[in-house]
């Protein structure tokens, strides 16, 4: 029974990591931008949920409203960042790291000034409180909801990339930017849309995190390292890899933690990833491209 409970805990943690990393796999994986402010877009999504709950009142309605609005808020912040700073440094990945880290600090301080330094509370709707009992096993409803939401986001993103003209353009730019441009694709416009979607997904992740943990200015920093780990281990630029890596990380953390302690589990997961990257520096799944860069 404990094993099943841990299996669920692992999948659930995996789905949280997946939501946090999905947007990053687009912006970092597909565009090569190291965006340290990704966590702060999550924080913005979480505060969006808080503000909406303050306006609407009802926890259920506000959560359902916050998901699309969190996407838009995160996306717009990303668009702003892309248009003002990042597009100037697409070929300078190290500089984007510093610049976006600075942006992250600024956003944290803005949140602190606007909403105050202490954490705020976002209430979970009644239909998400408590657990579903299946054969003596208590599965928290919030975690089932997040698992379902992660699946929806992955399917939606995969469909958008595969079946829409926009998705074709994104994939073309990822595989060979120069050739895509030569074929008449505006890589500038494609970059913007990609960044909007990636940042918007961070916003959604932020909204869901309000169901699990604290909502404060540093919410994003707790997840950013794990999110990068997922993307790197999963392989740059592939959703499939991100999904597998997120679930593997979640399960590893849950089972290591069960047999040892939380601190040791964290170390073991890091060791496992380092060892894995030694064997497969390109990650689980990698795109083969003919691009020269």
């Amino acid at each position: 029974m404990d094993i099943i409970a841990q299996l669920f805990a692992g999948l659930s943690l995996g789905s949280v990591l997946l939501l946090a990393a999905l947007g990053l796999s687009l912006t970092f994986g597909q565009m090569g931008v190291i965006n340290m402010a990704h966590g702060e877009f999550m924080m913005a999504g979480a505060y969006t949920a808080f503000v909406i709950q303050g306006v609407v009142g009802d926890a259920g309605v506000s959560l359902l409203l916050a998901l699309p609005l969190g996407f838009v808020v995160g996306g717009l912040l990303g668009l702003l960042l892309e248009a003002t700073l990042i597009h100037r440094m697409y070929r300078r990945p190290l500089d984007t790291l510093l610049v976006t880290w600075g942006v992250a600090l600024v956003l944290q301080q803005v949140a602190r000034d606007v909403f105050g330094a202490p954490n705020v509370d976002v209430r979970a709707p009644a239909w998400l409180s408590g657990a579903v009992e299946i054969g003596g096993l208590a599965l928290p409803r919030t975690r089932l909801f997040i698992l379902a939401l992660a699946i929806v986001c992955v399917v939606a993103l995969a469909l958008a990339l595969r079946a829409t003209p926009l998705g074709r353009r994104i994939r073309a730019v990822v595989q060979n930017r120069d050739l895509a441009e030569a074929s008449g694709i505006s890589s500038r416009a494609t970059d913007r849309v990609t960044f909007f979607i990636g940042s918007g997904l961070a916003g959604i992740a932020g909204v869901t995190l309000t169901l699990l943990g604290s909502v404060g200015p540093t919410l994003g920093t707790n997840y950013i390292v794990d999110a990068f780990l997922v993307v790197v281990a999963g392989g740059i630029g592939q959703i499939k890899g991100t999904v597998i890596a997120a679930m593997a990380l979640g399960l590893m953390q849950a089972f290591f933690e069960y047999s040892t302690t939380a601190s040791v589990a964290k170390v073991l997961v890091f060791v496992a990833i380092v060892a894995f990257l030694q064997l497969r520096p390109q990650g689980l799944v990698s795109v083969r491209t003919r691009s020269l860069a």
């Binding site: 409970a5 841990q6 805990a9 928290p140 707790n222 933690e257 939380a262 964290k266």
Partner: peptide, 20 residues
């Protein structure tokens, strides 16, 4: 007796242990 690293945000495993 369980310890979580400072800033730890996922308590499903620890709470499972507490519960059982």
């Amino acid at each position: 007796e369980e310890y979580a690293p400072l800033g730890h945000t996922d308590f499903s495993t620890i709470v499972n242990k507490v519960k059982s």
